[in-house]
Simulated assay, not measured.
Amino acid sequence: MEWPVTPGDYVVGDPNSPVAVVTLASDYRSLNLKNYAICGTCFTENFGIEKVIVNVLSNHRISCLLVCGKESDHFAGQSLLALAENGVSAFGGSRKIVGSEGVIPYLNEIPATSISRFLREIEVIDLVETTDPAVIQQAIDSCSGEERGEAPELSMPEIDEHSWKKYEKEVKQNVMSRIKKGQQ
């Protein structure tokens, strides 16, 4: 299996490293980091997180996910941390990240078993809003993970600018709920 398995805005470092780095909305190129397996951005609380999960799980050497950089407008960092802390709720047929502040925090494009495996096997390290390369590099260098079991063969469906529309009903409900909360 060729790794990484799904395209995105990232660079591959040393595939034998136990660390994956998500720089959220910050430009990973300007940080000049090293000693990671994969490093890239994540802007969205749904498809972006799913791509991170797929690429992290498909390399059995990765056991740490370092989440750093400026938060995205979609709260991808907060949503990743909420996922690690609270998991997902399958209420209503969709897998929603419990405690996410994002408008569309649904992880329905990958198998539920992948989410469960990610939660069990990957240590998520919170450095959201940290952009100091020295601090981030120190965190990368301090990760020493054990190789996980065999990497699952995962794939991700094609995502385009219209993919979010399947969540249009949920988006409207979430936005209206937030408006009502703000009026109280």
Rank of each mutant, 00 (worst) to 15 (best):
P4L: 09
S72P: 03
V98I: 15
S30K: 14
T6I: 14
I49H: 03
R29V: 14
V124W: 11
N86S: 14
T113Y: 05
C39W: 04
V19K: 01
A112D: 09
E101R: 15
R95E: 02
K96E: 15
V124K: 07
V103Y: 03
S89Y: 13
S79F: 10
V67R: 01
V19G: 01
N108L: 08
S100N: 11
S89D: 09
A76M: 12
I49Y: 02
N55W: 10
F43I: 15
I122S: 05
T113F: 08
N55Y: 08
I97N: 12
S89C: 11
K96Y: 02
A37H: 03
A25T: 00
L119A: 04
P105Y: 12
N86D: 03
I122G: 00
P15H: 00
L83Q: 03
D9R: 11
P133H: 10
D9L: 14
G77Y: 10
D73K: 15
Y106Q: 09
Y10V: 10
I122M: 11
V22M: 11
A90V: 12
F118G: 07
I62W: 01
S94Q: 10
C68M: 07
V21L: 01
N35K: 14
Y36C: 04
A112M: 13
L66V: 15
P15S: 08
Q78W: 08
T113V: 04
H74V: 02
E71I: 10
G92K: 15
V88K: 13
A76T: 02
G48K: 15
C64P: 00
L33V: 06
V19P: 01
N86Y: 06
E71K: 11
S94C: 06
W3E: 06
A112H: 11
G93A: 14
L24D: 04
R61G: 04
T6G: 00
L119S: 10
S26P: 05
P133N: 06
L57W: 07
E123H: 06
T113R: 14
G93V: 10
N55A: 08
L127F: 12
N86Q: 14
A76Q: 03
S72A: 13
D27I: 07
D132P: 00
V22N: 13
V88R: 12
G13P: 05
V22Y: 01
G92Y: 07
V22D: 10
R61Y: 06
I49F: 03
N35Q: 08
S100H: 12
C42F: 06
D73S: 12
E50P: 05
P18W: 01
L66M: 04
L65W: 04
Q78Y: 07
P133D: 01
L80G: 02
K51Y: 04
D73V: 10
E50T: 03
Y106C: 12
A25W: 03
A25E: 05
A112Q: 12
R61P: 00
S63M: 13
V88C: 15
P15W: 02
G40Y: 05
T23G: 01
V88H: 11
L57Y: 03
I62H: 02
V54C: 11
R29K: 15
G13A: 08
K34W: 01
Y36T: 10
D132C: 07
V56L: 12
R95K: 13
G69K: 05
P15A: 06
V5W: 00
